[in-house]
């Protein structure tokens, strides 16, 4: 009985949906996190009687034939690219990106990774790094004697010094944009890597080439909507139960088959 296996594909699909939902809910407070959603597609079809095959000697053809489906498969777990709400933190190195684009950081192996999490820090030498300690491109150093720093919408970082009226320009942050942001590969710690699917990233100053602007003193919150996740969870759980009912019914039918004699 194929119905058993079909129901099993349905159960594992719903299982995967619950996995995705639980990951979203676990990341409800992760800054810069985008909610993910599991997407499904149906599996192959078995052809029993092809549509248009001859049904009788007088040439009558079957109008639709029989195609029996074999269940469901996960098609994608895609990111819902959405602007999260901005939370005011007043941290001088907390920045939120309004619009498209990612900050780029350099991993210890020299590879570039991309993030929307703008909770930046500085090292003992004054280098601007992300929470993991990876250098933020283009490697701006804040002098130790700077009184305060300010970052404008275009990502230009200015430092104020005691006894000086004019601020000093330290450098400008660059953002990286992608043709297909959903194609980026998540590697944890709010970081993404470029893939074939995302296309090559292009670097540009904030506010140009369709990229967003930066805002100092704010952090982008997670875009997970708890109400939506809960309704999805209810649907996934009921879907799981429905498929398990099919398994029970098929089991009983098989029981009846063995009792024929």
């Amino acid at each position: 009985m194929k119905a058993l296996h079909i129901a099993a594909t349905g159960m594992s699909a719903q299982q995967m949906r619950v996995d995705t939902i639980s990951n979203n809910l676990a990341n409800m407070s992760t800054s810069g996190y985008n909610a993910r959603r599991a997407e499904f597609a149906d599996l192959h079809y078995q052809q029993f009687a092809r549509a248009g095959s001859i049904n009788a000697s007088d040439g009558t053809v079957l109008p639709t034939g029989i195609q029996l489906g074999l269940g469901v498969r996960p098609a994608a777990v895609s990111m819902q690219i959405q602007q999260g709400a901005l939370a005011q933190t007043n941290g001088d190195l907390d920045i939120a990106i309004e619009g498209k684009g990612f900050l780029s950081v350099t991993l210890p192996d020299g590879q570039a990774a991309y993030t929307r999490d703008g909770a930046l820090k500085r090292t003992g030498d004054g280098l601007i790094v992300n929470s993991e300690g990876f250098e933020v491109t283009p490697g701006i150093v804040i002098p130790n004697d700077a009184r305060s720093i300010s970052i404008n919408a275009d990502g230009e970082i200015y430092a104020y010094f005691t006894g000086q009226v004019q601020p000093q320009l330290l450098g400008q942050l660059t953002l990286t944009g992608f043709a297909n942001e959903k194609g980026l590969e998540a590697i944890g710690s709010n970081l993404f890597l470029e893939t074939e699917g995302s296309g090559p990233g292009f670097d540009a100053p904030p506010g140009t080439d369709g990229l967003g602007t930066v805002r100092q003193g704010y952090l982008e919150e997670s875009s997970v909507d708890p109400v939506r996740e809960m309704t999805e969870l209810i649907k996934a759980q009921r879907g799981y139960e429905l498929n398990s009912k099919v398994i029970t019914a098929v089991d009983q039918m098989m029981g009846a088959t063995t009792q024929v004699r």
């Binding site: 119905a3 029996l68 469901v72 879907g239």
Partner: peptide, 23 residues
């Protein structure tokens, strides 16, 4: 009936499939 059961199992397995059409 066994075939029909397969169709039902397929429909139920695809209750969450975007754009799926009932069979």
């Amino acid at each position: 009936l066994k075939r029909e059961m397969q169709v039902i199992a397929h429909n139920i397995a695809n209750t969450s499939t975007t754009g799926y059409r009932r069979e």
